[in-house]
Design a protein around this nucleic acid. Sequence first.
DNA 1: CGATCACACGCTCGGTAAAC
DNA 2: GTTTACCGAGCGTGTGATCG
Length: 335
Amino acid sequence: MRASAGRILSLLGLALLLLAANEAIHAALSLEGALISECGPEVQMAHVQYNAIMLQVSGAAVLGIIMNYQSDYVKKVAAKFNSGDLKRLFLGMVVAGGSVYNRCGKYCIRFYGKDYTMHQVFAGLSYELYRSSPSTIQITGRGSYMTQLYCKDAVIDIKELSPDTNARKGGTPTIEYILEGNRSIRQESMRVIMSVAGWVAPSLKRTAYGYSVSTRIGLGSSSPLPLNEEYKILAESLLLKFNSYSDSRYPETGYLMSYDPDTCSGFLSMGGFVDGSLVKKGRYAGMEKNSVLRASLAIGGKHFETPASAEKVMEAAVCNSNFDLSALLGRIMLG
DNA sequence: CGATCACACGCTCGGTAAAC
DNA sequence: GTTTACCGAGCGTGTGATCG
């Protein structure tokens, strides 16, 4: 059974907890609690259900994590897609937010990022595809993680699908393999890629009637131009309209961005970001990308008297998707 | 040989505002 | 209202050292 490895890890974790009830474990668990509390209800449920166990290893600030790789998201896609398609998702994650290290006889695929959930997804896909379990390390002094998969087969696969993997070193990764997939897996790949390298940035704009919020979503920031073009083709195949932009400091790179409300809401209605995918920095850092996107779209076009009142409504909308938007708007809004 | 640790460099998101 | 441009500091990334 594919679930058995995960169960064994859970049991192992439970045993360790019982045996080693020390301060370190408690500290680790409370940190984990704080982390998980940022996630949506679905993630929290999954978490309670499967109970990831954290262990303190050498060094004060470095935590090793034994993860249970049964993210709800991976369970869902594993039931729906064959392994060829799952490989498309895996490729998307590596290209958008990972690296491949293959020197000195080492075969290592890494995934970086602050989203605990996305590391679970990466680890879950690794297990589904290669029956190999990576380990996740929290990077010292920062709220981000690195997941390392030592697996020769995986490295060979990725290098075959995208020979040039490391964008940082001037390479140009390709997602051609994803583009060859059917609509369903392309849509899922888009969601995963956006969750890894995409962003939401609601912005305040002074208008004749006060201030209004406009919604903006984007993908990447300095992707190699050919890859950026492939991202655009992928988006267009799903009727999402992005424009390409380039940062003048990095001429051979580009990113995608869209202000189009139909594109923003269209992306949301196809599932949007993977649940638990968080905004990385800025005013909404740590909040769910989907919540921010939903809130921003909900109050887009409304006018506010002051920037502060607009931000207040945004904050309320992001933090509680069930709150009474119209009541709050009635009190604060002008037009 | 697989796995973990450590760290410096420069790239990324995302804030902001001007130009259409 | 929509699109383009600029910019910065926090963090992503590659790699060597090290350990069991």
